[in-house]
Design a protein around this nucleic acid. Structure first.
Lengths: 368, 368
DNA sequence: GTGAAAGCGCTAACAG
DNA sequence: CTGTTAGCGCTTTCAC
């Protein structure tokens, strides 16, 4: 046991000299109280001259306390600057009133609104949101999810990076409510909320075909990502339905960083029979394609999956297949809390519709 | 004590019939274990035939365990699906390895990168990030901050909505590392990291003046927000330095929702002596002003505070005073962890420079 | 209406 | 190298 700090007789609270600032904190590590000498309910009880449980009652607004006692306790709380330690509470109660959200990248404009929507629902249920970015790395996803489980979050909203979520089975069995969003879980049966990637892409490509295009390029994300695969399937289906046979050089799948997408776009636009239209698989791709097309002489039609800010102000406006990120998040979070209620029985797959918004770029006729 | 669930002799783990799904969970509330019947270190110890502390050693990678014992413990962990309960750990250790971030709106494209940057730094220090949006409401900010303190986050990064943070004094004294970002704390001495709003706005407006403008409008956020006030001050200073006396009708301050900004813009552009240029106080304002100007016949110069995606692709490109949201977040988070190290002594104010990026809209000459 | 005792699952301190 | 004991600060239980 380290040196003892002096204690005020009346309050029972440790007296910390004014000079003991942050730099001194490490020295306190061996004192009784680990939280920077925070008062506990016991301290409050001592100061108010009541029992521990009475303080607990007051703090939690439970009935069975005389107004007078309550006042005394409140005063002690005020004077001591007491704040209930939820860690201890959680340990006892088994519920943390917090949920975890694992997504790909909080900086991506698609996930901001989604995250905010989840947060709003959590807030309505009195829960806090712990956020983590997987950076599209399955290992990091798992690491994050398990860290959240170790903190005993009540529930988990996951935008999967990996395609094997068996590691979550024990957690789900142990009662962690879990909802997957944007992409389905892999090798595990769980709730999932997604946009109709297949239908949206098919309609978007069909829209280009209806405007006279036949040589249509598709630039998307890595095919191991479910949405990317579905959108590609939508593209293929629309082409097939129109009796167009797709050339390999019209399709490009891979990471959606600007360099690769730029190169892919330029390749499709070069050669003797360039594409006259492009379908972009997500907002990151669309933005880069717009950039490339802006430098390109011949007009090329474009439809992008995902809406984005200012799409309407570009020249031409960018036609998109819009999905509602906020609705995705809200739906998932609501389902999560219904799981927690116990009012949900078996996992379900919810698919939200997409919407084609014509703004000009998708209605450009073929250049040749 | 409620009904006992049958226990498997070999594993010591409770056997939950296949029909006992989520709907049954509430009934488990009175069983010994609150976390959906999760195994504890004690269970693992029993199964591995070792002491509790040995399990703890293995789980935490502490030395002093024979490879053979370790293997047995690992097997038990695996078999039982054990996951350390960090709530209990936190209670004992006094550190949660988590930090809180309170910002205005996660859905705002300015905060996504900032939040992500904070998360990255937290991750590098093994901490998780708890995120909350204040919706620019001081009460909600306080509510969130205190909820985070109750969870005993190790530190707090706050983008203030309110201007009185005295409620945080006991927390800071108790050892919660705290850094304010984007706006300074109110009535309290604390670390703060901000952009040079005053200098940036002054330079932006001076840029318009240098391009021949004299009737320049300013549309900004509510003046109670520090950055808004500073940017207004920058505007006034630039105008004054140029010997231009500002008319009241050239300034509009208030909430930055599209309706108000649209109205404000239209008013400035109407009348006998309309403004020939506008300085927009943040990215929300800029985007709306761009929209209004797009419908306007006469060209109007524009410089906006904050950069935004696609600003370069609009016609004309939008000249902006850029601030680095990610750098703001990174700097703040790094400072937070240095506080936690104990390597920081007194609160400091760090100001990050802004950068004027010319893209065309700010270089348009006056229309008259 | 109030309080004492037990214990949530873990780690620190110390004993073997 | 391993295990036992005592508590972290709170809620639960039950007695007064």
């Amino acid at each position: 046991m380290g040196r003892r700090t002096p204690v005020d007789d009346r309050t029972g609270r440790r007296i910390v000299p004014d000079t003991a600032r942050r730099a001194d904190r490490p020295a306190d590590r061996h004192s009784g109280n680990r939280y920077g000498n925070r008062p506990t309910m016991k301290d409050v009880a001592a100061r108010a001259g009541v029992g521990l449980k009475t303080v607990s009652r007051v703090v939690n607004g439970e009935p069975g306390v005389t107004p007078d006692t309550e006042r005394r306790v409140q005063e002690a709380i005020e004077a001591l600057g007491f704040r209930r330690n939820d860690s201890a509470r959680v340990l006892r109660k088994g519920r943390t009133a917090s949920i975890g959200l694992v997504l790909e990248d909080l900086a991506d404009p698609f996930y901001g609104p989604l995250s905010r929507a989840v947060e709003e629902v959590a807030r309505a249920h009195g829960a806090l949101l712990i956020n983590g970015s997987s950076a599209e790395d399955p290992e990091r996803e798992q690491e994050l999810v398990l860290a959240l489980c170790a903190r005993r979050v009540d529930g988990l909203v996951v935008i999967p990076a990996g395609d094997d979520h068996r590691y979550l089975a024990p957690e789900i069995k142990a009662g962690v409510a879990t909802v997957f969003v944007d992409r389905p879980a892999g090798k595990i049966d769980a709730d999932v909320v997604l946009s109709d990637s297949f239908g949206g892409a098919r309609d978007g490509v069909a829209h280009l075909i209806a405007n006279g295009h036949r040589r249509i390029g598709f630039i998307g994300d890595m095919p191991r990502i479910h949405t990317a695969a579905e959108r590609l399937r939508g593209y293929r289906t629309a082409m097939e339905d129109a009796g167009i046979s797709v050339e390999d050089s019209w399709m490009s799948l891979g990471v959606t960083d600007p360099e690769r997408v730029r190169r892919a776009t330029e390749e499709m636009l070069a050669g003797p029979a360039p594409v006259t239209a492009i379908f972009a698989g997500n907002n990151r791709v669309t933005v880069t394609v717009v950039r490339v097309l802006a430098e390109h002489s011949r007009p090329v039609a474009l439809v992008g999956f995902d809406d984005f800010e200012l799409a309407d102000l570009l020249k031409p406006g960018v036609t998109v297949v819009a999905q509602d990120a906020a609705a995705l998040g809200r739906t998932a979070a609501e389902r999560l809390f219904r799981q927690l209620d116990g009012s949900l029985i078996s996992p379900e797959r919810i698919e939200l519709p997409t919407q084609l918004i014509s703004r000009g770029s998708g209605e450009l006729p073929p250049a040749d």
